[in-house]
């Protein structure tokens, strides 16, 4: 993705993010999104440790939705899901707050929010609801490489290991 005035792909598609306010706001969005997930995860850990029993029930209830086959398959591993949901929510949140492995963590966030958005069937507040906005926030973190703005990824990407393996920037950034 591009965040320079020059089109990254030569297609004429560009998105300028320059100046202190734009970078500041990308970083703010990242930290707040991270806090959202960190809080959701750590409170589950405090309440029920690595046995979040609602996770498999929720997944089971997703049958008949767009992601039903995936969700019901995952529900077949109740102990794993009960541990992974609070753990990964917490880790994704921490990663975004710190701006470390931001794109990888945001990919995890996209998975979570896809399941939340599709699974919260009924859509009493429409298809475009808070869950979809959360999902789009994580996609935005990936597209803008939000970890490069006041995040640890900015430093990690300068390390020789990453310089020698530039593809890692697709997971960092």
């Amino acid at each position: 993705m591009s965040y320079d005035t020059k089109a990254a792909t030569g297609t004429g598609f560009s998105f300028e993010v320059s100046g202190p306010w734009a970078t500041y706001w990308v970083a703010m969005l990242r930290v707040i999104t991270g806090w959202w997930f960190f809080h959701a995860g750590v409170t589950k850990l405090l309440d029920s440790g690595l046995n979040f029993g609602y996770a498999p029930m929720y997944l089971e209830g997703m049958s008949g939705t767009t992601l039903g086959p995936v969700a019901t398959f995952l529900a077949g591993f109740p102990n794993l899901m009960g541990a992974m949901v609070p753990l990964f929510e917490t880790l994704i949140g921490l990663a975004l707050i710190a701006g470390l492995l931001t794109r990888l963590a945001s990919f995890g966030g996209v998975i979570f929010m896809s399941l939340f958005w599709v699974g919260n069937a009924g859509f009493g507040h429409g298809v475009v609801n808070g869950d979809l906005m959360g999902l789009l926030l994580f996609v935005t973190m990936i597209a803008l490489a939000a970890g490069r703005y006041y995040g640890l990824d900015a430093f990690v990407e300068k390390m020789s290991f990453v310089q020698n393996n530039p593809r890692l920037k697709y997971l960092l950034g």
């Binding site: 320079d4 990254a8 990919f107 490489a145 490069r148 990407e157 300068k158 593809r167 920037k169 697709y170």
Partner: peptide, 27 residues
């Protein structure tokens, strides 16, 4: 978008001039 990300991971980076201050246009 996910498939595109996999494609970008799997193919060589064409250009890399990126730093934190001046983000790359290649990724």
């Amino acid at each position: 978008m996910g498939l595109y990300a996999v494609y970008k991971l799997a193919t060589p980076i064409e250009e890399d001039t990126g730093t934190a201050a001046t983000p790359s246009t290649s990724d």
